[in-house]
């Protein structure tokens, strides 16, 4: 967590203070430093979720199931951030909060997939069953994500012509790019630290009756 805090601090400083204003979009482009990393992470987390779900399904590894389960809310919140900041960015740039842009739409569908996963998880009493059912759903989703992405892109470009392409210029200036990369590193480390915290409490609930939990708690309370 410390690492991600440091990275966040550096990335934010670089992004908000050091980087020059964009010649077209002015200072509003600074939203990019949270918008783009969270959009990247939203996909990355879904992949982690599906892969660890698959591992749990095949080898019956409990820890993989827990990782998948703990990742879902974090991924959903990254998706949410990407959508909301995208809308806020869109308001001054495009004039409206929402355009039926291909990327925005597929991100929205991704949010639906996350929410479906979470809803399915919470519908079961038995955690093992929930984890394995969720894993199947995540795998189905991962097969579908590229299909959804390309279908949406196609739909949009054929339907109303290309809207705003964000990175039209071939390369983004280095002083803008470096904070962006640092921010995405920060997002990644943030994700892992939050995911591990979630896993820890999941495991404690999971193994509430195990002996090691008893010992752990005894030593903990004794030391206080």
């Amino acid at each position: 967590m410390l690492l991600s805090l440091v990275l966040f601090a550096v990335g934010l400083y670089g992004g908000l203070v050091m980087a020059p204003a964009d010649y077209q979009q002015g200072d509003s482009f600074r939203i990019i430093y949270i918008h783009v990393p969270s959009a990247w992470m939203s996909l990355f987390v879904y992949m982690v979720m599906a892969i660890s779900g698959g591992i749990g399904l095949i080898w019956h590894m409990k820890i993989a199931e827990i990782v998948a389960r703990s990742s879902a809310p974090i991924g959903a919140s990254f998706t949410f951030i990407a959508l909301v900041t995208g809308a806020i960015w869109g308001k001054p740039m495009w004039g409206t909060w929402w355009v039926w842009d291909a990327r925005l739409t597929s991100e929205l569908i991704l949010l639906f997939l996350y929410l479906g996963f979470i809803a399915l998880q919470s519908a079961f009493e038995d955690r093992r069953v929930a984890a394995r059912a969720g894993a199947i759903l995540a795998l189905v989703g991962i097969v579908n994500i590229p299909i959804i992405h390309y279908s949406v892109e196609w739909w949009n470009t054929l339907h109303q012509g290309p809207t705003v392409t964000k990175f039209d210029s071939p390369s983004i200036h280095l002083s803008m790019l470096i904070p962006l990369l640092i921010m995405s590193l920060a997002f990644t480390s943030y994700y892992f630290s939050v995911m591990l915290t979630r896993c820890r409490s999941e495991i404690l609930e999971y193994e509430a009756n195990a002996n090691w939990v008893k010992e752990l708690l005894t030593t903990k309370t004794a030391s206080i």
Partner: peptide, 14 residues
């Protein structure tokens, strides 16, 4: 419906 509607979207689009 929550689970399947997102998965149906490509079919609808095409």
């Amino acid at each position: 419906s929550l689970l399947i509607l997102p998965l149906y979207m490509p079919v609808l689009i095409f």
